[in-house]
Every structure is written in C-alpha cells, then in structure tokens.
Computed example of a mutant assay.
Amino acid sequence: MSKIGERGEAGMIHNRAQELTGHEEILIELAQCLTQESGLLIFAERSPAVRQGRPVQISVAGLAQEDSVTLYLAWQEPTEPDLILLHLLEALAQKIYQDLLDSRDKNQMQETGSWEWLMREGERQKWNCKKFAQHVSHYALPPLNQGFPIYIQCAPWHSKIMKVMANLYPQAQVCWSQKPNLFLWLPVGTPNLSRAELKARGETLIQEVYSLLADELGVSTVVLVGKPSENNLWGGYLEVKELAVLHARFFAGESGLTSWNLGLAFLFSTLSTISAEQYWEGLLGALSDDLIETLSVFLDHDLSIGDTAKVLFIHRNTLNYRLDRITELTGYNPRRLKKAVYFYLAVWLKKHLK
C-alpha cells in the first residue's frame, strides 16, 4: 500500500522494547512483514508517518517471557479501526513473529562451526584462502561437492527471499544471508560436464534467479556466478565478490555476470577510470554518434563490408565513405586488423565503462 517508514527518533520505541537488547532487528522485520501481509502501514517506532495519522497500539506477546512490545498502525481515516481488525492484526503479528523466531532458532543451531558461521568470521576478519582452510580443518566441516559459488544482490531485501531460494535450490550446501545480499554454494549435480556445458549452466542460473525473484517477490537482482570447484568455498566467495565489483563498473544494467564472460573487463580491471576515458575519447572523440555506431557494427561483424551494410541498411559505397571518414578523422584505418584492434578496445570501453 505504501512504503514502510524509516526508523523514528531515538527513545520513541515502546519502553519495554528498549530493554530487550538484540531484538530491534526482528521487531523491524516483524513490522515490515505485517505491513506486506495486511496492506496497512505498520511501524516498529513512532515515526513521523505515524504521528501524522492516528496511531493505534498493537501489543504482540513473545519477545521475552511475560513481556510484550508495541507496534504502531498509521491510521489515516477519521475514525479508529474497530476491535475485530485489531484482534486480527494481533493474531497475524503473533504468527509472523513466531515464524521469524523459528527461523532464527534454526540459524542459531547451525551457528558455531557451520559453513555459514565460518564465512561470516572470514568476512569479518578478512581471511585469505589459506587461513579459511585452516579453520575448515579445525572444525572438521564436511566436504562440499563440486559447486557454483553464487552471489545475489537484492534490491530491496524481502523477508521471503530465503524461503523462495530454498524452494528453488533445496540442494544448496551453503546459504549465507548478508542482507540485502545472499551467497549460495550450489552443487553442479551432473559430473564431468564440459566447459561449454558449465558455462551454459551458469548463464541459466542467472536467468532462473533473476526471473523467479522478480516474478514472485518483485525484487530486482544482480546474480554473479563463479567457476565451479570442489571444496574451494572461500576462493569462490572472493571470486564472486570481485565479479560484483566488475559488474558495477562495466556491466551495470545487466541481470548478472559469470566468470566466463568477463572478457576485456578482466584486462581493464586495474585500469583507472580516468585513463580508460582518456583512451576512448582520444580515439573516438572526433567521431559523430553515427560514425561510432557504424564502426561498432563493422567491428562486431568481423570487418565485413557486406554484412555491416546489410545490418545498417545502407549501400556498400555509403559504408566505405563512412570508413574513409573515420580514417581521415582519427588517422587509423578500421579496415586494417591492427588498427581495428585499437578501435575495438575504445568502442568496448565507451560502451561498458561506468
């Protein structure tokens, strides 16, 4: 119905909730879930949006034994909601809250000595692969199957993402939430797949995750898929984190990226943005948009005059005139392979650099 309000002023939350250290996050998540389920505006604190309406307190038992907290309903109508509606909201809130508690209890049981716990510690302490492997040996964690490391950036985070992903990939051996991001280790399943088959599977994973979360929850994602390996969980995690950086720099707007599709982005990853811009502007700066488009199509079609003319719907003589004009303005003839390489790098950078 409306966007959930931001957290309000310090001290405005219900007094009893202030004493329940460590429960603030779950209280906010409860308010978000209740808003999504009821279609009303529910807040964990007295935010400005609540004060502008007619706040109604909804007590939810269960944060601690014999304790309760208060959520706030932003009521915009001239009359307050009736008791039946409040009782329904309380029942719904208690059910949602219990589900949240159950989920957290399960996570707590898996905490110390689990793959997820170890990854969290590795991230916090900035371990390298060797240090991570030492801790894996210390805790005698079970071996992992050959699997894809998958890093999913979600915008925004939704409380049902974990459930949806568990239903989609019940075979996942690691599922680590770093809201609003999620990391999975997904077994390949079929042994002895060729490189081409693994690459195709990686591309499919991007589309599966992107489409499902968009359709089911309305969540936009960027899906990063690393090369599959056996038992190299931390190396895979670091790989997909680096993919996220390269995606943001060179592939922004695309649904995802695999390690196989880095291409020139890998070569340009250490090149500063200023140097990259200077390179392509120095080579293409004198060309009009039409000439740059002609050059791009010409390069994409392997320097073929016939194929390029067909794609652009122009006569071969017109294309040759444009290529001559590019040569005149830049000093490089795109018909020559060595010069075409310079143009290809420049066009790629202009297209991808963010």
Results as ranks from 00 to 15, higher is better:
W117K: 06
M119L: 15
R124L: 10
R124A: 11
Q125R: 12
N128P: 00
F132Q: 01
F132E: 01
F132D: 01
V136I: 06
V136L: 06
Y139T: 07
N145D: 09
Q146Y: 10
F148Y: 10
P149S: 05
I150S: 02
H158R: 04
M162I: 12
V164G: 02
N167K: 08
Y169C: 00
Q173M: 11
Q173F: 04
Q178S: 12
P180F: 03
P180M: 06
F183M: 06
L186S: 02
P187K: 11
V188D: 02
N192S: 10
N192P: 06
L193F: 12
S194H: 03
S194G: 09
R195V: 06
E197I: 07
K199F: 06
K199Q: 10
A200F: 07
A200G: 01
A200V: 05
R201T: 09
G202F: 01
L205F: 05
E208C: 07
Y210V: 11
Y210C: 12
L213W: 00
E216H: 13
V222H: 06
V223A: 02
V223P: 02
K227T: 15
L233V: 01
L233E: 04
L233M: 05
G236Y: 11
L238S: 10
L243D: 03
L243H: 06
A244I: 06
R249M: 09
G253I: 00
G253A: 08
S255T: 13
S255L: 07
S255R: 05
